[in-house]
Every structure is written in C-alpha cells, then in structure tokens.
Nucleic acid binder design. Structure first.
Lengths: 224, 224
DNA sequence: GCATACCGAGAGCACTGCTCTTGACAGTGA
DNA sequence: TCACTGTCAAGAGCAGTGCTCTCGGTATGC
C-alpha cells in the first residue's frame, strides 16, 4: 500500500516534470515541479536522488515510448510488405518526434553537460533500431537482398558489428544502406525538430515521405 | 583606441566562454567566465546585454567557423573533381565537429530553452550548405546530372524551394538526393558527437568515409 | 504496543543571471 | 588648466536554483 503510493507519486512527479519540460525546455526546475505538486523541493529527493536521476528516468521513458511507437506501427503492417514496414518505422519516428519534441530533444539532442548516460538506457535506446533490423533480416531471409556492394574491409567491419546486433544474416551492402537510411531519417527529424529546416522547407511532410520512399528503394526493399 | 580595447575585451570574453563551454557544457556560467577573467560578473554586461546574447555570439562564430572550414576544404580540391569536392565538404563537417564538439552541439543540438535564433544567424548558418549547392550546380552545368527521378508534386515543390537558394539550375532528382546526403551527413555526425553510436560502432571513421562515398555515387557525381 | 522505516516541511548553503548604484578613469571643449 | 561627459569595473542586492540536513509526524512490521 505504501509502495503503491510511492509508485503513484513517482509517476506523478515524472508527468509534471514532462509537462514542465514541454513548456520550459531542458533546464528542468525541481522546485517548480515541486510547487506544481504542492510540496516542497526537498520532498522530491525522497523519490529521485538528484535532478539528473529524474532526467534519466524521463530519458528512459522517452526511449521506451519511441521504441513502442515504432514497434507498434511496424507490427501493424503486413509482414510481407517489407517496404511498407520500413516506411511505417520512419513515419513512426517522425510522428512521435513531432508529438513529443522536447522528449525527442532530450534523447537525440545535445547531451546534458555533466550527464553520463547510465548503461541501463542502452537496451531501451536500441529498441527502435532493432525493429529496423528485423525488417532487414526478414528481407534477407526471404532472399530479397543480395550482397551487391563491395565494402572496404574496415567499413565492412563496422557494418558487420552493427549487423551482428540487429540483423545477423543480412548481406553487408544492403545493411550498410539501411544504416545510412537510419542516419538519414534521424538527420531529417532532428533538423525539422530543431528548426534547422526553417526558411528552407516550410512543409517538410511530403519531402520526408519522398526521401524515405527513395531510401526503401535504395536499400532494395520491394514494394508490396 | 577606446573602441579597440572594447573589441579586444569582447573577443577575450568569447574565447574564455568557449573554453568554459568545452569543459562544462552548454550551461555556461557568466560568473565563472568573469572569475576567469579576473573581473566581476556585472562587468560582462557592459559587453553582452545578457547570457543569451553571449551564446548568440558564440553560435554565430561557430556557424562562420564551420562554414569557413567547409569552404576552405572544398576550395582546395580540383574544380573538375566533383565527387572529391563533395567528399571534402563531408569530411570538413565531420572533422570540424570532432575538433569542436561543444560548438557543434551548440548549433546542431537541441536549441536552448527560451532561446530564439535571431534572424542574423541565418546567413551564417546557410553558408555550408551553399557550398554543397555550388558543387551540385557545377555538376549540373557540366551536364553530368540528369533529371532521372520523377518526384511527387508536393515533394518536388519542397526540393525546388531549396534548390532555388543553393543550386537553381540543378535537376530535382539529383538535388533531392543531394539534400538527402546532407541530412545523412549531419545524422551521422550528430549521432557520433552525441554518443548515439556508442556500443555499436567504435571506430566510425571508415564507415563514414564509405557512406559518404556511396552518397556521391548515389547523387551521380563522377569520380575524377 | 512499540521500534523501525519512511515521508514531508523547513532552514540553510553555495551558486546562478541580472539590476542598480557608486566611484574611478579617459577624452573633449572652453 | 579645468570642468564635463561617457565608459568602465566593482560591489551590494534580489530572486531563483540544486542539494543537504534536521525535525516532527505517520504508517508498517514484529
């Protein structure tokens, strides 16, 4: 019972912190959060040992939310439609980022000064890219991807290392292009969220859709 | 004479602020900068009306430094070697980011909370991408790029709008791919600088080189 | 029933950005 | 030469911050 109250309070702190994050930005004020909750700042330290730990909790939540959103979107597509699954992932990332820009900034923006990502954020962080790996792996298993590109040995090693984690049987050429698509995807979303596209592209949606469709073709994923 | 002292002092404040940025991170402390300069915090306000204005000055400097670095690297390559010029741009961006990670984070990371980019940062910010546009424009003028891709009308409009600014005569297909390369480039560099590649790629250099080389081919830039 | 563990409130410390006032100095016109 | 003007650094002070510590009160487990 006490434990349940504690869990509820912890969640309540996180949600109001999220709200403050959305209105104020990354410099989250513990005291302001405490004020909103009608309590004093020191009380928050009963639940989070420091401000960084609160941020870490929010980061972890953001990663799992993004990962879940991506996984859900990809899971709703016909398994045989590999390009469709890829595009679902891309749009899920962008849609989530547009809906939660401050949480996106929290995880994909510049890291907080002294902040070091605890190792327990790693599994949550890699969830989204693992979904992409599943698509590539399925396409590879279906014999749709061929090892059509000769990579330099050192680059091949990098690609193979990532591939071992997300798509162990995929040929390195398409895998390298899929990795590039991932970077392309986040480059686009980051530029859009962080305002780097201002005064250049006013309605980025169509451009995004076209770019990602081209990436699906470039990787070699067949359209259903 | 009075004016020269003032300019020197302004520059000195910026350089120590840059140093603090490199060691402390984005939350720059005016008081700490003042202490390092052997003066009191209020004295800084004679040179910068607020902390945000100091950050704006640093951001502007960072943009021009990056732009200059990119322009210099591209300018050193034989004009006929279009792929070489493209690759010089890519590596200049990454090298500058690796050499000045905190300044990179300042301009391409999550924007500071209340901070709104003054409009005078726009020309400095667009300088680097303008260099890329020059390469595409030259390739187009040399008849090396063909309009080989049919873009959806709305996406074509986005691409054309950017093209009007950086490469007005380039065909939209290659231009769209060049734009994608730009996003790919900054996606890679941001992931590397912000630690998103940790536990996945330990030596990103070769992978970066391979990815950008592939992008040059994908755009259609001929290797010399 | 009682000891234990937990919890919120409050005071306090060192720090921050920023404002205001004060006194010192350099350059200028009479 | 002298007074005036503009610029500058210094210092005090305000409101806010993260964080620590102590002090009562309350629920939990034996």
């Amino acid at each position: 019972m006490r434990a349940r109250l504690r869990a509820e309070m912890t969640e309540e702190i996180k949600t109001t912190a999220r709200r403050h994050l959305a209105t104020e930005g990354a410099n989250l004020s513990l005291r302001a959060v405490a004020r909103d909750l009608g309590m004093v700042s020191s009380a928050i330290y009963r639940y989070f040992p420091s401000r960084d730990d609160l941020l870490t909790a929010l980061i972890l939540d953001a990663y799992t939310a993004l990962g879940g959103s991506v996984a859900a979107a990809e899971g709703a597509v016909d398994r045989a439609d590999l390009a469709g699954r890829f595009l679902a992932i891309c749009h899920a990332v962008r849609d989530w980022a547009l809906a939660n820009p401050h949480e996106y900034a929290l995880i994909y923006g510049s890291p907080v000064p002294g902040y070091v990502a605890p190792t327990d954020t790693v599994p949550a962080a890699t969830r989204a890219v693992t979904v992409l790996g599943g698509v590539i792996e399925d396409a590879s298993a279906a014999g749709l991807l061929r090892d059509d590109e000769a990579l330099p040995p050192d680059a091949a090693q990098d690609v193979a290392r990532v591939g071992a984690l997300i798509a162990p049987h995929a040929p390195l050429g398409p895998l390298s292009r899929a990795l590039g698509s991932w970077l392309h995807l986040f480059g686009f979303v980051s530029f859009e969220i962080f305002g780097q596209l201002k005064n250049a592209v006013d309605v980025p949606g169509p451009l995004f859709a076209q770019q990602m469709r081209a990436q699906a073709v470039y990787i070699g994923l067949p359209t259903a």
